[in-house]
Design a protein around this nucleic acid. Sequence first.
DNA 1: CATTAGGGATAGGGTTCT
DNA 2: TAGAACCCTATCCCTAAT
Lengths: 139, 139
Amino acid sequence: MGAPKQKWTAEEEAALKAGVLKHGAGKWRTILTDPEFSAILHMRSNVDLKDKWRNINVTAIWGSRQKAKLALKRNLPAPKIDNNHMALSTVVRHDEVLDTKPLAVSGGPLQSTNLKEQISRLQKIKLNISAIYYLMKRN
Amino acid sequence: MGAPKQKWTAEEEAALKAGVLKHGAGKWRTILTDPEFSAILHMRSNVDLKDKWRNINVTAIWGSRQKAKLALKRNLPAPKIDNNHMALSTVVRHDEVLDTKPLAVSGGPLQSTNLKEQISRLQKIKLNISAIYYLMKRN
DNA sequence: CATTAGGGATAGGGTTCT
DNA sequence: TAGAACCCTATCCCTAAT
């Protein structure tokens, strides 16, 4: 039918996370037009960003079931690491509770206004890690 | 305790095919709520329809789903189609010119616009036969 | 007219049952 | 081993509200 379903790459996901960190969740069009991210996200719409962000948070919150499934899969032969998908989301998924302070990222400070309501502490930590990774790859 | 596994009856399958003929493949919820089919398919979900349609086509074309998967992997290494240019590649793929006329099915004309892109010649013939069978049984 | 939030539908990989 | 039925969920679509 329409598009054959565009899977999000790790790079795109990292850019989205960095974008949320910089502009806040809900500012999808702003993130999209920010020259810092527009190159990487140029094939995504603002709605795509919103949907992906929702999905990221959903899986982050109730991750235990996935862990059970993944544990089963670890018995299978080949890990088969895909260049595209491996890096980030897998690294970030080991979510122990950390006690760290949020980092400032590139463009400016956190938009603390409503961000606190939208992002949990744990998520924030993950975002910081993702954003760091993203920025390191860029520079 | 889930589902005791409901086998598809010939009547259900014919209704599904007629539904695809009328509304197009992918319009599962539309087919399901069409009063013309809802009575027969009332114990099926839209996802059931999608799954059944996949099975029908896979066995019709290849003989098995696994073979289809393998074949796809061999033929299309990395399509990665850009969202903006999607229509094209799909159109070009099924470009056989049909000289048989599609049947009109009860409620309305074929949505010929995207149907041509979705159904091959062989499939269409089979669908027509199924639809005739379905309509004969109904009337 | 543009954008976003949220519900809902679809696609496609995976799993279970026969 | 195969094939049919069913599950999981990332992605995509529709609509109301702003």
